[in-house]
């Protein structure tokens, strides 16, 4: 294998610029974290809603939840990115469409985050549904027997319990969100993978570049995993097995 190693590359300046390659990667990490975290919040909110809708027993609501899930689950994330970036702006009213295409601040970030959030929400919805269905039927009856409304029953009883049950799959979904944010390179969000490709072409030190970026992704995975473990410990109910 004929390869010229250069571990000092990260401190060197990029071609035709004043910043270093390390600066590029740091910026990339920042966008990756921002995109994944914001997408996660969107996904958690909409996924919980869609998953809960599917368990209401109301045909219209359950159908809406199911449609939501099937729609976002059966098209590749990369294709969804292109749809949001290239197609959706064309469907908007003329004024808004022009604004989105020309003036919207952080266009790539907003598009990628929204897209990743909706994509992930479908997967969370399935987990939430499974979590609610795993609860004994009597819990819903007991809540209703007290006079709680369906909404109160979900917000005070079913969802707090279901979310605790599914914390393990939610953790891996959270870690997936960081990994999946890498797809946003394709619409030009300057996150880690975008920077990796850019630095590889610019410096021609591919292995060092990819190693560094891979380690940064590991770091994201560990942060995500620890954060969820912390939440799990904080929300554990006394007397239940950990």
């Amino acid at each position: 294998m004929n390869y010229h190693w250069n571990w000092h590359i990260f401190a060197q300046q990029v071609q035709g610029g004043s910043e270093t390659y390390a600066d590029w990667l740091a910026a990339g990490l920042g966008w990756t974290l921002a995109c994944a975290l914001c997408a996660w919040l969107i996904a958690l909110a909409l996924g919980t809603l869609a998953g809960a809708l599917r368990t209401t027993g109301n045909r219209v609501l359950a159908g809406a939840g199911a449609t939501w899930v099937e729609l976002f689950r059966n098209v590749p994330l990369l294709v969804q990115m292109f749809l949001w970036f290239f197609v959706v702006p064309e469907l908007l009213p003329r004024e808004l469409s022009l604004w989105v295409k020309q003036d919207m601040p952080a266009k790539e970030f907003v598009t990628a985050t929204l897209c990743l959030g909706l994509f992930t929400s479908a997967r969370i919805a399935e987990q939430v549904r499974a979590g609610i269905q795993a609860l004994p039927r009597g819990q819903r009856e007991a809540a209703l027997a007290l006079g709680l409304t369906t909404l109160q029953c979900y917000s005070h009883i079913l969802l707090p319990r279901a979310l605790r049950i599914i914390i393990a799959p939610l953790t891996s979904e959270f870690m997936n969100t960081f990994k999946n944010s890498s797809v946003a390179f394709a619409i030009g969000l300057m996150e880690l993978t975008f920077q990796a490709r850019q630095m590889q072409e610019d410096s021609e030190q591919g292995i060092e570049t990819y190693l560094a970026v891979t380690l940064l992704y590991f770091l994201c995975a560990i942060i995500a995993n620890r954060a969820m473990a912390l939440i799990e410990a904080r929300t554990r109910v006394p007397g239940t097995p950990g």
């Binding site: 009597g138 819990q139 007991a142 209703l144 027997a145 007290l146 006079g147």
Partner: peptide, 18 residues
């Protein structure tokens, strides 16, 4: 809901909220 608030119910499996 209003009616159920006035009718107490006790279940076979307790159904306390754990």
């Amino acid at each position: 809901n209003r009616l159920r608030a006035r009718v107490g119910m006790v279940f076979q499996h307790f159904e306390l909220f754990p």
